[in-house]
Amino acid sequence: MHDQLETLLEMQDLHMQRRALDEGGVRELETGLFEMGAEQAIDALEAKITELELRLGKSNQERFRHLISTRQRAVVPVLAGVCYGCFVAVPTSWAADADPNDKLNVCQSCGHFQYYPS
């Protein structure tokens, strides 16, 4: 897997965790059932996101920030040859690669980073 893609995936997952703690249902469960300290958790997640951002190249960093703030997701899956950022078919040559995740693919239509789940 491309190292920048790995970092982007990790950052997006952390953003999801961070955002989920603002949602009523998740926050209630995490602080109730699991007795998590929500504010401390948010601080820890934000610190980790900032740390990981430094591993990205400048253009990827800017694209990630833009996408996550405007469209909530920066990395989207490609399933059955379709980009789940815009639902447009990806070029067949991309999906035909031995492991398409070895490259950092950006959708030509919507601009999201793409990930091919196994």
Binding site: E10, L14, F34, E35, M36, A41, A44, L45
Partner: peptide, 12 residues
């Protein structure tokens, strides 16, 4: 890694 991160925020 993500599961570990979640555990670090508080045990499940």
């Amino acid at each position: 890694k993500m599961l570990k991160r979640r555990e670090n925020l508080g045990s499940t």
